[in-house]
């Protein structure tokens, strides 16, 4: 496993259209989408795909110790969360990941909404969110396949801000991965910019 952070300048993945629709409340078999509206929505999703510039980063770190509510990593970082500690029960390493859909999609969304094209805006917003998640899916799937050959498995992933993993944890992962290299910045409230950026941790058993 690489000891240095691996940066992916262009991830060859698009958000699945079904996921984008689902995020906006589409219900298969229930939602009725007339042809003309469907075309508009498809065009907007395609535009979103063009505007996204999907990048990622990942790093494996060894777990040096665990307590009931925290996991300590080889670089001294401590992840405090009962849920994460439980999830990493059998893990010897941790996978830190981040992905961003880039600034272009957010800028265009804001422009469209400012111009009153709110429908296009919400679709671009959904494409951006799903694309960032797709970046994590892509990395996790690829790394899981690589690790499977060595008899190792990756747990499900967990993002700061969910469950009892505090959003503050976003900062230590941000610093460890040096995410400024893929154009992500973090605020003193731990908000990531570009907005469509996500960070996650997973265990490796």
């Amino acid at each position: 496993m690489p000891e240095k952070t691996v940066y992916l300048e262009r991830i060859n993945a698009k958000a699945p259209v079904d996921n984008v629709l689902y995020r906006m409340g589409y219900k298969k078999g229930k939602t009725v989408l007339p042809e003309q509206q469907q075309k508009k929505i498809n065009d907007a999703i395609n535009l979103g795909d063009i505007l996204c510039d999907l990048k990622g980063a990942y790093l494996f770190l060894k777990i040096t110790s665990k307590s009931g509510n925290s996991v300590r990593l080889e670089n001294g970082v401590i992840i405090e969360s009962i849920q994460v500690t439980e999830l990493f029960k059998t893990s010897s390493d941790v996978l830190l990941m981040a992905s961003t859909a880039g600034a272009g999609i957010v800028e265009r969304r804001d422009l469209e909404m400012k111009a009153g094209n709110n429908s296009l805006g919400v679709i671009l917003d959904a494409v951006g969110s799903e694309t960032a998640d797709t970046g994590l899916d892509w990395m996790q799937e690829f790394l899981a396949a690589q690790l499977a050959k060595k008899g190792r498995i990756i747990t499900r992933r967990f993002s700061p801000g969910y469950g009892d993993l505090k959003i503050e944890c976003q900062k230590v992962i941000y610093d460890t991965l040096n995410l400024s290299k893929i154009g992500i910045s973090i605020s003193d409230r731990f908000l990531l910019t570009p907005e469509k950026s996500v960070i996650a941790v997973a265990g490796v058993s």
Partner: peptide, 22 residues
Amino acid sequence: DLYEKKTYFLPQLIASADAMKA
């Protein structure tokens, strides 16, 4: 109503809102 019944989803609701605004 259509939105509440899930016959419409968010972009359709917002497209109608945009039309109202216009």
